[in-house]
Simulated scan of single mutants.
Amino acid sequence: MLDILSAGTAGSAPGWTGFLPIVGMIAIFWFLIIRPQMRQQKEHKAKIASVKKGDQVVTAGGIVGKVVKVDDDYAEVDIAQGVRVKVIKQTIGDVVPPGGKPAND
């Protein structure tokens, strides 16, 4: 009788194996979602830090303009002749390369 009980418990899997699917899902989320998003944020910060006078930018709101003045936190953008707006640098969505045009044009 004792051999039957011990044989039943010896064939069962350890308790920690129930966590393996959860660990696997976390690893999949890390490599497919979190890590690429962190890389994009890092590239965006580098792009924003390199904004200089004369660059053509697109804001997060879709406004296209030319940078006239850059501070630590703000940038003045000329969006039309004689119309300048002061934007927070973090709201700049993209820097348009010279000679290029924004994606929505």
Rank of each mutant, 00 (worst) to 15 (best):
M1A: 13
L2N: 12
L2S: 13
D3P: 00
L5E: 08
L5T: 10
L5W: 02
L5R: 14
A7Y: 04
G8C: 11
G8N: 12
T9S: 09
A10V: 04
P14I: 06
P14A: 13
G15A: 15
G15W: 10
G15L: 15
W16R: 11
T17A: 13
G18H: 11
F19V: 11
F19A: 15
L20F: 12
I22V: 14
I22G: 04
V23G: 03
V23K: 04
V23P: 05
I26G: 09
I26W: 04
I26Q: 09
A27Q: 04
A27F: 07
A27W: 09
F29T: 06
F29H: 07
F31W: 15
L32K: 15
I34R: 15
R35L: 10
R35N: 11
R35M: 10
P36D: 07
P36H: 06
P36Y: 03
Q37R: 10
M38Y: 00
Q40N: 11
Q41S: 07
Q41M: 12
E43L: 07
H44S: 12
K45H: 05
K47Y: 08
I48Y: 05
A49C: 01
A49Y: 00
S50H: 05
V51D: 04
K52L: 02
G54E: 01
G54I: 01
D55E: 04
V57E: 03
V57R: 01
V58R: 01
V58G: 02
T59W: 03
G61I: 00
G62K: 06
V64I: 12
V64K: 08
G65T: 07
K66R: 14
V68E: 12
K69T: 15
D71V: 00
D71G: 13
D72Q: 12
D73W: 08
Y74N: 10
A75W: 03
A75G: 03
A75S: 08
V77L: 03
D78K: 14
D78C: 07
A80Y: 00
A80I: 00
A80F: 00
Q81F: 00
V83L: 08
R84E: 05
V85F: 11
V85Q: 10
K86Q: 08
K89H: 06
T91M: 07
T91A: 13
I92W: 02
I92C: 03
I92L: 01
G93W: 05
G93E: 05
V95Y: 05
V95E: 01
P98E: 13
P98I: 08
P98Q: 08
G99P: 02
G100Y: 05
K101W: 01
P102N: 02
P102H: 06
N104T: 07
N104R: 14
D105F: 09
D105R: 06
